[in-house]
């Protein structure tokens, strides 16, 4: 096998079909960028889930003087109410699910509020007695929040039970939907990339039909005839894949680490290392799809 011949043919084919080759590069570039972005989002969701689900607690808000009358007809929760809730959390029905719990009084709640809304003028207007006394319950398994919610909702002196996980689930489902949308767009574009590759290969083969005819006549092996076309498709897709890999790395380097991580310092974002580990996967997907599309289309062309 003479490699010089093969690469000469590949070079000629790429030049002859330049506009088609450029469109293959662009379509694989864009589609694989979407694939990479979707993968980043999924990894980000995974990381955030681990981090936040670990910290998510169920809050049992007790009635305060400012609570709405329909939830708290008896007014502010009494000491009896607090001790009965404490007893209930410790008894044999609930304690298997509870990792730990603590009581937060109104002054502590104000301190936490002021901490959380440090730069917000709202802290000037909020006083301790407007806030709820709260039992914070940390569960052994964060998915068991419904057990606490059911046990305490409607109990006298309890204004509301809130599973923090339900807030997180909303955020995660939005992120999840975004990544699914990216995958959807990516698959449509990958499909068109495949069609584009097979059209280009067929066109390339057609423009070399005389040579192909002679090669078949004199007994060149099928592999030898097909190889330049397969390499042609793979090279074009490989360029697009490398660009897509670069884009994913750039997104993490400049947007996630450079911007998001600076503005949200306490969030654990995907790292550059993770992005770099995606590059070979993206490259592999691009090259494998192009190889399959090229092989199938040149084989079909030669059979016809």
């Amino acid at each position: 096998m003479k490699l010089g011949y093969v690469f000469g043919e590949v070079g000629q084919g790429l030049k002859r079909n330049l506009s088609m080759v450029v469109s293959i590069v662009l379509v694989t570039f864009l589609s694989l960028s979407f694939v990479g972005t979707a993968a980043l989002l999924q990894l980000q969701i995974g990381q955030m889930k681990n981090y936040w689900y670990d910290r998510a607690q169920v809050a049992v808000y007790l009635c305060s003087e400012f609570s709405p009358a329909e939830a708290c007809p008896q007014g502010a929760a009494s000491a009896d109410v607090k001790s009965s809730i404490e007893a209930k959390l410790q008894d044999s029905t609930l304690s298997p699910y509870v990792d730990k719990f603590y009581f937060q009084d109104q002054d502590q709640a104000l301190k936490q509020f002021q901490e959380e809304f440090k730069d917000n003028t709202i802290t000037n207007y909020v006083t301790a007695d407007q806030l709820n006394e709260t039992f914070w319950v940390k569960l052994k398994n964060p998915t068991d929040g419904a057990i606490i919610t059911q046990s305490f909702t409607g109990v006298a002196g309890v204004e509301e039970v809130r599973d923090q996980r339900s807030y997180l689930d909303q955020i995660f489902s939005i992120l999840n939907a975004a990544s699914l949308a990216a995958v959807g767009i990516a698959s449509v574009m990958l499909f068109s990339a495949i069609l584009l590759i097979s059209t280009t290969i067929r066109q390339s083969a057609f423009s070399r039909r005389r040579e192909i005819g002679i090669m078949r006549l004199v007994g060149a092996s099928n592999f030898y005839i097909q190889l330049p076309f397969i390499i042609e498709g793979v090279v074009a897709a490989a360029i697009g894949s490398i660009l897509a890999g670069g884009t994913v790395v750039a997104i993490v380097q400049f947007f996630v680490q450079g911007y998001l991580a600076q503005s949200l310092p306490f969030t654990n974002f995907v790292s550059l290392g993770t992005a770099l580990s995606l590059v070979p996967i993206i490259f592999g997907i691009g090259v494998a799809l192009a190889a399959i599309a090229s092989i199938v289309s040149i084989k079909r062309y030669l059979r016809a």
């Binding site: 040579e211 002679i214 090669m215 004199v218 092996s221 030898y224």
Partner: peptide
């Protein structure tokens, strides 16, 4: 095999036309 219409490659010289069929079988 030879044909009525010769089937030579127009962009190759006489030498290259003959050499081509040896090159492609290695």
């Amino acid at each position: 095999m030879v044909f009525q219409d010769f089937r030579l490659l127009p962009n190759k010289t006489v030498f290259q036309n003959v050499a081509f069929c040896l090159e492609v079988i290695g």
